[in-house]
Design a protein around this nucleic acid. Structure first.
Length: 272
DNA sequence: CACGAGACCTGTTCGC
DNA sequence: TGCGAACAGGTCTCGT
C-alpha cells in the first residue's frame, strides 16, 4: 500500500492509536520476537534480533520518505513496506493474519504485526538510521522542497520526468499513484524530459505534488485491491487506474502507457 | 549518467 | 468453466 500518504497514515496510527482503538506503540515493551520469513529482516541477523530486542520499549514513531522509523530505548526499528506490506498493532489473543512475516509480542497483551503478501518488505534494526536512509532526497512536504529547489533540481538531470520523480534519491515518498496524479494536475506529459520542463511548469509541479500528497493524507491514503486500511483516496483518483474514463477536466479518455516499466495514466489532451 | 531487462514474490483480474 | 498471461502501491542489480 505504501507511498508517502499511506506510510504517514500508518505512522500516525502507530503513534496515536487507530480511530476506535486507543492503543499506541510508544510505551509498549517488546517481550518476544518472531521472524516467519527470514528475508524480511535485512539487518542484523535473526539471532542478534532475538537476543537484543526483548526488554526494549518503543519511544517514538516517525516517517522518512516511505520508511517507518520506530524508535526504541536502544536503536531504531526501520520498516519499508514496498508493494504489499502493512504494519499494525493488534491484541495478542486473536489469530495471526495470513501473510504475517514478522511479529513482536508486546506488553499490555498486544502485538506488532508486519504483514506482507508479496514478501518484498524489509525491516532493519540499527543504531544509526542514516546508514539506511542516507541517500533519500528531500521530504516533498518539508522545508527543503521549494518551487525554486525543484526547478533547479529538474535541470540538473536529463531524464524522463516520471522516472525522475519516482527516484527516491531525487524526492522521497512519491510512488506510482501520486506521481501520475501530480503530473496530471501540473499538465505535464510523463514522457517529457526534465530539462525541458519550464520554470513556470516546475512551480506548477511543485504545487501539484504537495496538493496530491496532502489530499492523500487527508483521506488516510488509498486502499486498493485486497489490502484495505480504511483509506479513501482511491475514490479521488483523477487519472490513476482510470484508463478509458473521461478526464475530469476535458472529458478526453484517460490513456495508459508504460514509462520506465511502470503503468502510467494520463490525459493526452491536458498533458501534451 | 540514463535506461531497459530481469529479479524478488503472491494474489487477482483479464482474455481466449 | 478453466487456464495462462498480464498486472499490481517498490527497489535493487546488471548490462548497454
Amino acid at each position: 500500500m505504501p507511498e508517502l500518504p499511506e506510510v504517514e497514515t500508518i505512522a500516525r496510527y502507530l503513534r496515536e492509536g487507530h480511530p476506535g482503538s486507543a492503543i499506541a506503540l510508544p510505551g509498549l515493551r517488546i517481550e518476544g520476537v518472531h521472524l516467519l520469513w527470514n528475508r524480511t529482516l535485512f539487518q542484523p541477523t535473526p539471532k542478534e534480533l532475538v537476543n537484543n530486542l526483548p526488554g526494549l520499549t518503543f519511544t517514538q514513531v516517525d516517517r522518512r520518505g516511505k520508511y517507518l522509523q520506530l524508535q526504541l530505548t536502544n536503536g531504531v526499528l526501520l520498516a519499508h513496506l514496498r508493494m504489499s506490506g502493512d504494519l499494525f498493532i493488534q491484541p495478542d489473543e486473536i489469530p495471526l493474519p495470513p501473510h504475517t512475516r514478522f511479529w513482536l509480542k508486546l506488553s499490555q497483551g498486544q502485538r506488532l504485526v508486519f504483514n506482507d503478501a508479496r514478501k518484498f518488505g524489509r525491516v532493519w534494526w540499527v543504531q544509526e538510521p542514516a546508514s539506511v536512509l542516507g541517500r533519500l532526497g528531500p521530504e516533498p512536504l518539508g522545508e527543503m522542497f521549494t518551487p525554486n529547489w525543484l526547478d533547479t533540481a529538474l535541470h540538473e538531470h536529463r531524464r524522463q520526468i516520471k522516472p525522475l520523480l519516482l527516484d527516491q534519491s531525487f524526492v522521497a515518498g512519491l510512488g506510482n499513484i501520486y506521481t501520475d496524479e501530480a503530473l496530471f494536475l501540473a499538465g505535464i506529459h510523463p514522457n517529457r524530459l526534465s530539462t525541458d520542463v519550464t520554470s513556470a511548469e516546475a512551480v506548477k509541479l511543485h504545487h501539484a505534488i504537495q496538493t496530491v500528497l496532502r489530499e492523500g493524507i487527508q483521506q488516510n491514503g488509498a486502499s486498493i485491491d485486497w489490502v484495505y486500511r480504511g483509506g479513501d483516496f482511491q475514490n479521488h483518483f483523477r487519472v490513476y487506474q482510470q484508463t478509458g474514463k473521461a478526464c475530469p477536466v476535458c472529458n478526453t479518455p484517460i490513456e495508459r502507457i508504460v514509462v520506465g516499466q511502470r503503468g502510467t495514466h494520463f490525459c493526452p489532451n491536458c498533458q501534451q
